Lab assay of single mutants.
Amino acid sequence: NMTTNERRVIVPADPTLWSTDHVRQWLEWAVKEYGLPDVNILLFQNIDGKELCKMTKDDFQRLTPSYNADILLSHLHYLRE
């Protein structure tokens, strides 16, 4: 019986294949993992993996503070390698 913190996010390895639900799961995981403040996951609700991967730093900064944008982008970049 796992707690929420221990729950593994199971999403496709390639972020471009993510559904909007996968994006939400990834964001929820990242918020907990990195202790990100002020991430409004609802702002990302219509973004799927293909859109997420096209987003620039400016795009991320429209949805979340700069600090969060940096961490989310670097993790996304890591996943795409």
Rank of each mutant, 00 (worst) to 15 (best):
N1W: 05
N1Q: 11
M2H: 09
M2A: 03
M2K: 06
M2T: 10
M2L: 10
M2E: 05
M2I: 06
T3D: 09
T3I: 11
T3V: 08
T3K: 07
T4Q: 07
T4V: 10
T4Y: 10
N5D: 14
N5G: 11
N5L: 14
N5S: 07
E6K: 13
E6R: 08
E6W: 13
E6T: 11
R7G: 11
R7A: 11
R8C: 07
R8D: 15
R8P: 06
V9P: 15
V9A: 15
V9H: 13
V9R: 15
V11I: 15
V11W: 15
P12K: 05
P12N: 10
P12C: 02
P12A: 05
P12T: 03
A13L: 09
A13N: 14
A13D: 15
D14S: 03
D14G: 01
T16N: 09
T16V: 13
T16Q: 05
T16W: 07
T16S: 09
L17Q: 13
L17A: 10
L17G: 14
L17K: 14
W18K: 02
W18Q: 02
W18M: 02
W18H: 00
W18T: 00
S19H: 05
T20Y: 04
T20K: 13
T20E: 12
D21E: 13
D21K: 06
D21C: 08
D21N: 07
D21V: 08
H22Q: 11
H22Y: 01
H22P: 00
H22E: 12
H22K: 04
V23Q: 00
V23Y: 00
R24G: 08
R24Y: 05
Q25I: 11
Q25T: 11
Q25R: 11
Q25E: 12
W26A: 00
W26L: 01
L27A: 03
L27T: 02
E28H: 12
E28Y: 08
E28W: 06
E28G: 05
A30K: 07
A30L: 07
A30I: 06
A30S: 07
A30R: 03
A30Q: 11
V31W: 03
V31T: 12
V31H: 06
K32F: 05
K32N: 13
E33F: 10
E33G: 03
E33P: 00
Y34S: 04
G35A: 13
G35P: 03
G35Y: 06
L36S: 01
L36F: 10
L36Q: 01
L36C: 12
P37W: 07
P37G: 10
P37F: 06
D38C: 04
D38A: 05
V39G: 03
V39Q: 05
V39T: 11
N40Q: 06
N40T: 05
N40D: 14
N40G: 03
N40Y: 04
I41A: 06
I41M: 09
I41T: 10
I41Y: 09
L42R: 14
L42K: 11
L42F: 06
L43W: 08
F44L: 05
F44I: 02
F44P: 03
F44T: 03
F44R: 04
F44N: 09
Q45I: 04
Q45A: 12
Q45Y: 07
I47Q: 00
I47P: 00
I47V: 12
I47K: 04
I47Y: 11
D48R: 05
D48M: 03
G49P: 01
G49H: 00
G49V: 00
K50R: 10
K50M: 12
K50D: 11
K50T: 12
K50F: 13
K50I: 07
K50C: 12
E51R: 12
E51N: 08
E51L: 06
E51K: 10
E51P: 00
E51M: 09
E51I: 03
L52P: 00
L52M: 03
L52Y: 00
L52A: 01
L52Q: 00
L52T: 00
C53D: 03
C53R: 03
C53M: 13
K54E: 14
K54N: 09
K54T: 08
T56W: 03
T56N: 08
T56A: 07
T56V: 09
T56G: 13
K57Y: 02
K57I: 15
K57L: 08
K57W: 07
D58Y: 12
D58Q: 08
F60Q: 00
F60H: 02
F60I: 14
Q61P: 02
Q61W: 07
Q61S: 10
Q61Y: 09
R62N: 12
R62K: 12
R62T: 06
L63A: 04
L63W: 05
L63K: 05
L63V: 08
L63I: 14
T64F: 13
T64Y: 07
P65H: 15
P65I: 03
S66R: 09
Y67G: 14
N68T: 14
N68E: 14
N68M: 06
N68K: 04
A69T: 05
A69P: 07
A69L: 01
A69W: 05
A69M: 05
D70H: 11
D70Q: 10
I71Y: 04
L73E: 04
L73F: 14
L73T: 11
S74H: 15
S74F: 03
S74Y: 11
H75Y: 07
H75S: 11
H75T: 02
H75D: 15
H75K: 14
L76D: 00
L76V: 07
L76C: 06
L76E: 01
L76T: 01
L76M: 04
L76R: 00
H77Y: 04
H77K: 13
Y78M: 15
Y78R: 15
Y78D: 15
L79I: 14
L79E: 09
R80E: 06
R80M: 13
R80N: 15
R80K: 11
R80V: 09
E81Y: 09
E81F: 03
E81M: 03
